[in-house]
Design a protein around this nucleic acid. Structure first.
Length: 927
RNA sequence: GGGCGCGUAGCUCAGCGGUAGAGCACUUCCUUGACAUGGAAGGGGUCACAGGUUCGAUCCCUGUCGCGCCCACCA
């Protein structure tokens, strides 16, 4: 092995080998285990959130593959209608062109071209992350097969009247010129104004004052409403007001929708431009007056003076004109929520258009039941409340979009306006006997999430009854962020229940969202985006600054972004390798919602990779240099101990994987590797391998244990750190007796459980405590590590003496002891620093070694701590209700602790007295 | 207006009825033959606050304060 760990040299090579060998494809006859990837936007870039999520899915996939399951990780990408169309339109705009100049067909061709390019980038990025997806099954939501699934569902839902076309108010994006679903509209609280306007009564007997946040919509008013029990206005109900600026007379109606406390208690009703007013209008059979065009500019239904004005300009004009007429009662500042499009950020307008809807309640019912019954389980389970809340109040889903990029709606119109829905035009004609009558296909496309909702079905071949569908549906787990539970998770459940009669996945692991070190969302405009590949490969400061400040939507932010970047990364970002990044993600995968990514964290895990690498080098060098060849083996205490400890670590990791606690899995393996295997076992093995008279059988056992423990550890770590483990395993696997070509198809080490050895753990604990006791004195007394010291034992039991005899080579080596022996009967104790190990007293004679003052201080500190412990324990045991009520085992444990503390305390008190006598003696002036 | 989550060491986070933990940062010592991306030893926390339940609360309950998110038609 190379002397230094160089991830960039090994990662690309190993991935290419795995992929070429076809090892990512599902295989074997084990239990099916399947994950479908949440398909990334095909024209997007892989960000930290993707890298995090793919790390988790890849860890699960590799883990289950190694467990022998028939494991499929289904890859693919999403066409992401609006987002992608916007990206390509922006490119066109950069060339001084518009999509309308190109025309629909040419534009769509251009998007496909961009899709090929961009999709390739994402696939390359996924490979860099080590994602073991089955590339042979790669899918795209607009593939012919998946498009067929979309059409099929649309037709079937339409035939069952679960899809309908209707003219209603929709959320209209006046910039993107398309309808949006409720979910794509974000409500943001902003400061605006509340206008109080005077509407004169038609009979000239006075006026009403209405309150509104949108004065310009008064041009579309068709009524004024008051509360039915509001005695202030009751006498006016049924009469009319003359709508200013228009001269139209509109009725005063009574409706309980009105809040008497708000404003004046009179509400202007604009049915075509407000969802509430629309409802009121339905109840009172009021006319709808649409006053906006597709740009939200005023149309010909308003007086000529206002036609063609943008809505915000119209607002100013209406206000000015009303003010001139003395009809503005007052204007006050007002907090209100403004609806904005999640992509365009434009203020969304309720607008009356023809759109397609999914009648959702019948689909929601079985989807709710699937979670209620526990057949689908959310992890953490608190998310099911969020799911229920939304599903129980769900509203019909507007699925048509006025875009060019997406699945064209399979509906055709005859010249008389009749609608025909079918799988294609030929089927429509045949089904309805339309002959050669001219038909025009609907221009609209479907909401991207319509095809995403089918993802678990469509990627497995539905509507065909494929063997993949039979084997892998329902899939095992969906790994996703909570931000798309409504957009995606809920809809997949509904569609899965509808078309398969079965849940699409058994568990939904909902992970947190990756944020920057300050907890801010990573975004281009904040300039705090980290590219996972930059953490893997490293990036210089100038390149990083350039990357963060180029292509900004708001170029004026560049300077502050540059400043912040230079401050945070004065030396750029170092290369850490994929495995370090993945291990970092795993360690961050707690149940928390927000995950702060601090670059400092990944450095520690790169060091961990380095540690593992060097441990492996040591194992290989040791074996090559020390192995006496085949023959009898006699395992030492340390050999039995390390096997037992890895068995414990493996079990902890298994349990953590089962509960999606990747943080605990990574922690268990990190701690075992560093604190037990490296810090202790490798050092213990040196004593066996390098000591002069070491027996061959012991050396053989040590070599085998080194190899087998390392090899087991590599397999345990592989799901989290695929590259380094494979690279080392290629050196180690064969020597450990494994014959397979790759670690990724070797069994995950559940069978290590057979190595559990409590007796070895107990005795080894004694050895470690002995060594730690000596080291503690050495450390606190600043005795140089190279200086070998003499150690005496007092009050040693036969058991202690036996342990010393069995383990003295380790004690001497790891505590740097020069000579070690028990005091003989009656032999006086020299002045010593002392460590306690049960009844055993470990003495370090102080002569010429230890400063009396320092030792006194050390003892005093320990004594103070012990006194506290003793006091606490005594208080507890002195409390009769504790003794009476606490479980016997707890009381017993407390008694044992107290005995231990008091024993130690009296020993240390005596020791301190001895040291201080010595001190007094030293200070005595010479006679 | 509902709902959810979070407040534990300087920072990022585990823990969750009975000795308060980790990583990074910090202090001291050490180039000892796997690793200075390292080794050994150490300092640092009234577990946001106030009540309650309990023999015992960081943990369970209630409330307060602070932070964040989601849903919702008050013009």
């Amino acid at each position: 092995m190379d002397k230094t760990y160089a991830p960039q040299d090994i990662e690309a090579r190993l991935y290419a080998r795995w992929e070429a060998a076809g090892w990512f494809a599902a295989r074997g006859d084990g239990a099916p285990y399947a994950i479908v990837i949440p398909p990334p936007n095909v024209t997007g870039n892989l960000h930290m959130g993707h890298a995090f999520q793919y790390t988790i899915m890849d860890a699960l996939t590799r883990y289950h593959r190694m467990l022998g399951d028939h494991t499929l990780w289904q890859p693919g990408m999403d066409h992401a209608g609006i987002a992608t169309q916007m990206v390509v339109e922006r490119q066109l705009n950069g060339e001084g062109k518009t999509r309308h100049e190109l025309g629909r067909d040419a534009f769509v061709a251009r998007v496909w071209q961009w899709k090929e390019e961009s999709g390739g980038t994402i696939a390359r990025q996924m490979r860099r992350l080590g994602a073991s997806v089955d590339w042979s099954r790669d899918r795209f939501t607009m593939d012919p097969g998946l498009s067929r699934a979309v059409t099929e569902t649309f037709v079937r839902l339409y035939d069952e009247q679960l899809i309908y076309r209707g003219k209603r108010l929709v959320n209209w994006d006046p910039v993107l010129h398309t309808a949006l679903s409720d979910l794509e509209v974000l409500a943001e609280e902003e400061t605006g104004s509340l206008w109080q306007l005077r509407y004169p009564l038609a009979d000239g007997s006075g006026y009403l004052v209405v309150a509104t946040t949108r004065p310009e919509t008064m041009l579309g008013d068709t009524a004024v409403a008051v509360h039915p029990q509001d005695e202030r206005y009751l006498h006016l109900v049924g009469r009319s007001v003359r709508l200013p600026l228009t001269g139209r007379d509109i009725p005063i109606i009574a409706d309980s929708y009105v809040d008497r406390e708000f404003g004046t208690g009179c509400v202007k009703i604009t049915p075509a431009h407000d969802f509430n007013d629309y409802e009121v209008a339905q109840r009172h059979a009021l006319p709808l007056l649409n006053i906006f065009d597709e740009n939200a500019a005023l149309n010909d239904n308003v007086p000529a003076a206002y036609r063609g004005l943008d809505r915000f300009e119209a607002r100013r004009r209406v206000e000015a004109d009303l003010a001139a007429l003395g009809l503005v009662e007052k204007i006050e500042a007002h907090r209100l929520t403004i609806p904005r499009g999640d992509r365009s950020n434009a203020v969304i307008e309720p607008w009356l258009t023809d759109q397609w809807y999914v009648r959702i309640a019948p689909l929601a019912k079985p989807a709710i039941a699937a979670v209620e019954s526990g057949r689908i389980r959310f992890v953490p389970d608190s998310w099911d409340r969020t799911y229920f809340e939304w599903m129980r109040n769900i509203k019909d889903w507007c699925i048509s979009r006025q875009l060019w990029w997406g699945h064209r709606i399979p509906a055709w119109y005859a010249s008389d306006g009749s609608i025909y829905v079918g799988r294609d035009e030929a089927e429509v004609r045949a089904r309805h006997g339309l002959g050669t009558m001219p038909l025009r296909q609907d221009e609209d496309v479907l909401d991207t999430w319509f095809s995403s909702a089918l993802w678990p079905l469509s990627t497995l071949g539905w509507p065909d009854p494929t063997s993949e569908l039979a084997r892998f549906y329902p899939t095992s787990v969906l790994v996703t962020g909570f931000d798309i539970i409504f957009f995606w998770v809920a809809r997949m459940i509904m569609m899965g229940m509808k078309f398969m009669g079965e849940i699409p996945f058994r568990e939904v692991y909902v992970h947190g969202l990756i944020r920057d070190a300050e907890g801010q969302k990573m975004s281009k405009s904040k300039g705090n985006v980290l590219d996972p590949l930059d953490l893997i490969d490293g990036i210089g400061l100038e390149a990083l600054v350039a990357k963060r400040t180029s292509g900004l939507m708001q170029p004026h932010l560049a300077a502050s972004i540059e400043r912040a970047t230079r401050k945070q990364f004065p030396a750029g970002i170092a290369a850490h390798g994929t495995d370090a990044l993945r291990f970092t993600f795993a360690s961050l995968a707690t149940l928390s919602r927000d995950i702060r990514f601090d670059v400092g964290r990944i450095e520690g895990y790169r060091n961990f990779c380095n540690k593992l690498w060097n441990a492996a080098r040591f194992v290989l060098l040791s074996i090559d240099g020390q192995d006496p060849g085949p023959g009898e083996e006699s395992p030492s205490l340390a050999d039995r101990w390390i096997r037992s400890r890895i068995a414990v670590a493996v079990e902890a990791t298994r349990a953590a994987f089962a509960g999606y606690r990747f943080d605990l899995a990574s922690q268990a393996l990190y701690e075992f590797t560093w604190y037990e295997f490296c810090d202790w076992y490798l050092e213990l093995s040196k004593a066996v391998l390098q000591s002069e008279p070491a027996d061959a059988a012991g050396r053989r056992a040590a070599c085998r244990t080194l190899l087998e423990t390392l090899e087991t550890l590599l397999r345990a770590l592989h799901p989290l750190m695929p590259f380094i483990t494979e690279e080392i395993w290629q050196q180690v696997g064969r020597r450990a007796g494994r014959t397979g070509p790759t670690i990724m198809l070797e069994p995950w080490p559940v069978d290590a459980a057979a190595w559990r050895d409590p007796a070895a753990e107990a005795e080894m604990r004694w050895v470690m405590d002995f060594i730690l006791g000596v080291r503690q004195i050495r450390g606190e007394m600043d005795i140089a590590p190279a200086r070998r010291i003499d150690v005496l034992l007092a009050n040693a039991s036969d058991a202690d003496l036996g342990r010393v005899a069995r383990t003295r080579h380790w004690l001497e080596r790891l505590a740097a002891i020069g000579s070690l022996r028990a005091l003989t009967a009656g032999e006086p104790e020299p002045e010593s620093a002392v460590a306690l190990l049960g009844e055993l007293r470990i003495l370090l004679p102080m002569a010429g070694l230890i400063d009396v003052g320092a030792e006194s201080a050390r003892l005093a500190k320990r004594i103070a701590k012990l006194r506290q412990d003793v006091a606490k324990a005594e208080a507890k045991l002195g409390n009769s209700s504790f003794v009476a009520n606490a479980p016997a085992a707890v009381v017993e444990q407390e008694r044992a602790r107290l005995a231990e503390f008091t024993g130690e305390l009296s020993q240390l008190d005596a020791q301190l007295a001895r040291v201080q006598r010595l001190s007094a003696h030293d200070r005595k002036p010479p006679a």
